[in-house]
Design a protein around this nucleic acid. Structure first.
Length: 681
DNA sequence: GCGGATTTAAACAGAC
DNA sequence: AGTCTGTTTAAATCCG
């Protein structure tokens, strides 16, 4: 007795304080490192992305430029036609203004890309180039908008004057003229949209050959399918096609033209918008394509519309159907500065995410690569520490392990677990949660880490890596016991399980063994049963669950309420996570499956909290009464009455009055211990 | 700051 | 006598 303790304690003596301090330090270190790395990465990524963008824009610039020129050409033609077709005083003005505006616009458009394409590239860095381009394009966009605005105002003015003047004319003639005029107006709006679209694309998105046809393809479905082709062909036949639409929207159109100055045209706006979204994928050529294709393939859907609401960043407006959404899109997210800005922001978001994704993927790969090699490396870490250096090593070990991780796995518990489990289902990420806790994963354990699942998934890791498992002794002991078919283990078997399952526990045996014994004795959930061979330890699930709620929720009373009154669904997330843990043993231990049936046995009223999960996995350990007594009595001959009596008694008090559990652990324990304790001791 | 939970250390005792 | 096992106490720490 004394010998062991002496030998163990002597070594361990120095450890205690050191261990604590170092542990906390370790946690801090890891946190800081990660943060710094992340930041640095983000910055670098951005620059890279920017460079790529600028380069991408320059290459296809010609194509776009050509497109723009065409658009301008068409616009010019329209204006000419309009001027000649409508014999009104405003013709000249419109024409002049058109040319007047057009010049600067085209110049602005050309200057950046056409006039000094290569020179600019040489002089300016890609980011600068891009910034300049965007600036100019924004300017150009503005000018263009103003230009179109003027045009429309003038047209509208003409329309009004025409109406007044036409009072004397035959109604039919007037109607025709108005129709023609409105049609022209409409077409001009379309043209405007096209032009703006092109410009915007140029400004916001890297040019892509495939995009050239984009507007044409999408526009038709959204709006007047027939008009656009003509527009682009330069035929501008004001003919019949548009008449229908004009007839329907004639008044509205004029109205919008006057008030909204243009972009009001519902159908046309949508296309540009959809392309706005496309740009988001700027860095990747695939994104836009996919988007557009999806557009065409599923006319009933819209990338910005889903689950009945608008997906425009920060919008979330509810729209009953696609039509309503389109309307909403056209009204709320029309082509304006705000939308453009949002689009830019979204682009940046996407860029950042992509960069982040790339970085994280890279990191994951590195971690995996490293960890796969680890199994053979655990020793190196531990070596420096001394193999059996008593308790001190316990704390030291963790530290050393962490520190020794060159790969940055400073946190054995958290980081170690996470990396190793790339396969881990997302929902089980809890493991990472406990990371929150400093050095001791115990916190994690309690909170929500499904020990069995984590063990199952990281089994190999813990087995080979000299990393302290992120679980409390109690949970580990329980796990060990539950993993056995009989759900009972001798102390020595528990020891063996520890050493078998965790490389970490292959050293410093004195310390952790002492802790195991301590925990077995300390926690009521561990029930000692004596049989012929000797004594075995079992788990009283009810007790085990009892001690957990308080931590989960923070207040015992709250827990009580939850347990007694609330339905499963009412439990908070963390609590459910904890429940999940309990249910995981199934995954982990094949032997547990059968016992799972025992779960049904649980009468647990207030224990339901833990019951749902835990009972299943563990054998009926869930219900201590059932579990231990019956099983042991059958499988193991109970040597002493105390054991049986103890277990028999436990069930009673525990089930009936939940109070014991709620009372302080100490009290609870005392109360219950009094009965069995006396007998045992 | 408090209290509960956990960890660690240690002392002690019974049984083999 | 030595070891294993089990209990208990105490201190330190973490966390809500």
């Amino acid at each position: 007795m004394m010998v062991e303790s002496a030998s163990e304690t002597i070594r361990s003596a120095p450890s205690g304080q050191n261990g604590v301090g170092s542990l906390s330090g370790q946690a801090d270190g890891s946190g800081g490192g990660a943060g710094a790395a992340g930041t640095a990465g983000g910055g670098a990524g951005r620059d890279t992305a920017a460079g790529a963008d600028s380069n991408g824009e320059m290459s296809p610039a010609d194509l776009l430029h050509f497109q723009q020129q065409q658009a301008l050409q068409v616009a010019r033609q329209f204006l000419l036609q309009q001027a000649s077709g409508l014999s009104s005083p405003g013709n000249n003005d419109s024409k002049q203004s058109a040319s007047a505006v057009q010049v600067p616009v085209s110049v602005a458009m050309m200057s950046p890309q056409m006039l000094t394409p290569q020179q600019m590239q040489q002089i300016l860095s890609p980011p600068q180039l891009q910034a300049l381009l965007q600036q100019q394009q924004a300017l150009m966009l503005q000018q263009l908008q103003e230009y179109y605005k003027k045009q429309q105002e003038q047209l509208h003015l003409q329309l009004l004057t025409q109406q007044q003047a036409g009072k004397q004319q035959p109604k039919e003639a007037l109607g025709n003229k108005q129709l023609a005029f409105q049609q022209q107006l409409l077409q001009m709006q379309q043209l405007q949209q096209q032009h703006l679209l092109n410009l915007q694309r140029q400004g916001l998105v890297s040019l892509q050959p495939s995009q050239a046809s984009g507007p044409l393809q999408t526009l038709p479905q959204a709006v007047c399918p027939t008009d656009l082709p003509q527009l682009w062909k330069g035929e501008g036949a004001p003919g019949q096609p548009a008449e229908d639409s004009v007839k329907q929207e004639g008044l509205d159109l004029t109205g919008t033209a006057t008030t909204a100055t243009s972009f009001a045209a519902p159908p046309k706006v949508s296309p540009p918008l959809s392309h706005h979204t496309l740009p988001n994928g700027q860095p990747t050529v695939l994104t836009p394509r996919r988007d557009s294709s999806s557009h065409e393939e599923t006319p009933g859907s819209h990338p910005l519309y889903g689950h009945g609401e608008c997906k425009w960043p920060g919008c979330e407006t509810l729209c009953e159907d696609l039509g309503q959404f389109i309307k909403h899109l056209n009204t709320e997210h029309a082509l304006d500065d705000r939308s453009t800005a949002q689009c830019r922001v979204q682009m940046q978001v996407v860029q950042q995410l992509e960069i982040q994704l790339a970085k994280e993927s890279e990191r994951l790969q590195a971690m995996m690569a490293h960890l796969h090699m680890r199994p053979s490396e655990p020793k190196p870490f531990s070596q420096p520490l001394n193999p059996v250096p008593g308790s001190s090593s316990f704390s030291k070990v963790t530290i050393s392990a962490a520190d020794s991780f060159p790969d940055g796995l400073v946190h054995p518990p958290t980081s170690a677990a996470a990396p190793v489990t790339p396969l881990r289902p997302p929902g089980l990420g809890s493991a990472s949660l406990h990371s929150g806790g400093p050095a001791r994963r115990r916190s994690s354990d309690k909170f929500c880490s499904p020990i069995s699942s984590e063990l199952a998934q990281n089994h190999e890791f813990y087995k080979n890596a000299d990393v302290r498992p992120p679980f409390t002794y109690a949970s580990l002991i329980r796990q060990a016991i539950l993993e056995t078919p009989d759900r009972q283990l001798t102390l020595n078997e528990i020891y063996n399980w520890f050493t078998r399952m965790f490389a970490y526990f292959r050293r410093n045996t004195a310390t952790w063994k002492n802790a195991v014994r301590h925990n077995l004795s300390l926690h009521k959930c561990f029930v000692r049963v004596e049989n012929v061979k000797g004594a075995v330890w079992t788990v009283d699930e009810r007790e085990y669950q009892k001690r957990r709620p308080p931590k989960m929720t923070g207040s015992p009373t709250l827990v009580k309420n939850m347990i007694s009154g609330l339905s499963y669904g009412a439990l908070n997330a963390s609590y459910q996570a904890a429940l999940a843990e309990s249910s995981f043993p199934l995954l982990n231990s094949p032997g547990m499956l059968n016992p799972g049936s025992a779960s049904s046995l649980l009468p647990l009223s207030h224990d339901d909290v833990g019951a749902p999960g835990e009972p299943l996995p563990s054998n009926g350990s869930s219900s201590p009464p059932r579990l231990s007594p019956p099983q042991y009595s059958h499988q193991v001959q109970v040597k002493e009455e105390p054991a049986e009596a103890e277990e028999d008694r436990r069930p009673g008090p525990a089930l009936g009055p939940p109070n014991p559990s709620t009372t302080g652990p100490a009290e609870d324990r005392d109360l219950e211990e009094e009965l069995p304790g006396e007998e045992l001791s």
